[in-house]
Nucleic acid binder design. Sequence first.
DNA 1: ACCTGAACACCGTTCAAGT
DNA 2: ACCTGAACACCGTTCAAGT
Lengths: 231, 231
Amino acid sequence: VTTRKQRPGRPKAGQTLLTRKRILAAALRLINEEGVDRFSMRRLATALGVDPMAIYHHLPNKEAILAGLVPVVFGQLQVPVVADAGWQGQVRAFAWAYRNLVRTHSNFVLHLVSNAELGANAALAANERLFAALARAGLPPAWIVRAADVLIDFLNGFALGERSGQLIGQPEERQPLLHLLEQHPADQFPVLRKVYASLDKAELAGDFEAELEIVLAGIEAIAQRGNTHES
Amino acid sequence: VTTRKQRPGRPKAGQTLLTRKRILAAALRLINEEGVDRFSMRRLATALGVDPMAIYHHLPNKEAILAGLVPVVFGQLQVPVVADAGWQGQVRAFAWAYRNLVRTHSNFVLHLVSNAELGANAALAANERLFAALARAGLPPAWIVRAADVLIDFLNGFALGERSGQLIGQPEERQPLLHLLEQHPADQFPVLRKVYASLDKAELAGDFEAELEIVLAGIEAIAQRGNTHES
DNA sequence: ACCTGAACACCGTTCAAGT
DNA sequence: ACCTGAACACCGTTCAAGT
């Protein structure tokens, strides 16, 4: 006779083990800990102490879990109100709040950036504050949208660079790139060598404040062009 | 007696079916056609008309295939030499070349952006030209690196937005966002509503040239600050 | 109503075997 | 040397069954 397998079963009769909320919370924790790639329905079920298929009773599929996480994460975006600051101060406040958010949920936001559709919901809540700040700069509507696009692209790109070595132009931890440079013949990439050679150690790290300043300066320049050209 | 399965076998004796080059070319074609997510060793083998395991004789694993694709793709980055242009003209030439590259291989570059490590190699070839252009602007080394970071973040972000609806601040095809806006109560997101309402149809599309102009204006402003503050 | 478990159609990769 | 095929440890998801 074969031995019976131990079944989990319900711990308390009539009581619900799983809820949408509990599933989403566990999913976000898993994703933050080990990334979206390693996140799976089966691992999520194990983390919840439940059969993999139990989840499907509360959320239709894996995509729905990721979509459900969007408002959970972006609901945490808290832009402080800075009453006595100009539009640049407002944009800075937004930028830092956004950066803090994507830092604490970098694995998930990373996935959003390259997938989208998911992000449209998040876009609403995030953009409202940013648009308001940019409107204060006196930009015409079309330029508000463009400035917001450039800023968010920068914020996402910077966040991506911080967590993963770097790609083409990501800040921070530039050592891998320097290491690669050493492996090439000395006559290759002269400009890169010269620039990096003249940086001190502190300057090798990505400087969020400084790079944000470039974007702000660009927006300001456009705003001023509008003031002199028109009205 | 069961029937024997037809075996593929080698078409011509002593002749090599697979090469690293052929595998990489097929992989890039597959990725361009259906994305990195749907790309698998088994599908690649099918496309090559070969047993899935045959590939492992030429490349050690899936990651090696993606890594091998980096020089293939970024080797195609061709920045035209614009002799009679200032630094802004040089940067514009780079920006357009980069944009064209990521457009034709958007699925792959998209994957690079959120993975990195892979990209360090690509970074070298791409950044050399960009750094040279930025050096002409009279920027100090630390600011060359920052300006390059901001520009590449913008270029990657814009490319991402073009191919996938949009995330938080991606350009082009803003209809999903507008659609979402309509589904919310009319008193929510007043600034977003006002801005989008005053845009005409043409302005709803992302404007690469205009957004690039913001970044260039920012870099220029920083370069001029340096000229007046120092030296 | 809520959960389980077998099943199906997929993955990447190892390893022994064929030619 | 180069390719095959069985096998292993995974996936997401459907569906019938249990309580």
